[in-house]
Amino acid sequence: MGNSYRVALAGNPNTGKSTLFNALTGLRQHTGNWAGKTVSLAQGNVLYKDKTFNLIDLPGTYSLFSNSNDEEVARNYIVFEKPDVTVVVLDATSLERNFNLALQVLEMTKNVIICINLIDVAEKQGININERILTNRLGVPVIKISARNKKGFPMLLDTIDRIVTGAIECVPVQTTYPDDIEEQIKNIEPKVSELIGNRLSARWVSLRLLDGDEKLLNEISKRFGQKEGSE
């Protein structure tokens, strides 16, 4: 289908990600309050304007360094299945920990929306979030919602729509690391680039190789080793 797009939902556990998923898709699915609740990926469709957004609820994880099976599932989906948009759902009351995951996603893929949930709870606790400043610092749209009260959905859907049509261009601002690490990245990034082309972010792959991510290594050899012939 020409106007069907895949939208992945990533986020920490306890951020209301599944609540958002359920509210948007209407799919009957139970929402959990702890890590690793949704292991087999739930999917559901949202109709918006003339388009269909196929939402994929990724496992809730604290990071995407593939420490666990869940993290690997979420990471592999974002990197290899290449959803048209990745929405990172954040808990407005614990943004510091939640940004950690969002920043990792920004290194892996381009079309990202930072979706700050539980905004009603945060406002009650006196937390005022300036999404303009955050958008500016991150280079991707930042949207405030309350999935519980179904607030902010039009804005979220409209932003997804504008990203897939190309009306908004995401330019994720990359995290810079201490000089020695940047030096190492510079060293191997060109070689990574040569090997994998623009199928993955070369900077990100370099970083993962430096970090000794064998699971990613195996995944790359498996996927790209096979694909070469069939494509």
């Binding site: 510091e96 940004f99 005022n128 991150l138 810079t176």
Partner: peptide, 16 residues
């Protein structure tokens, strides 16, 4: 470094 940046984002973009 990721947490430092998170911390900075919170300081700049959020008022408590």
């Amino acid at each position: 470094r990721l947490y430092e940046r998170s911390h900075r984002l919170c300081r700049e973009g959020i008022k408590y």
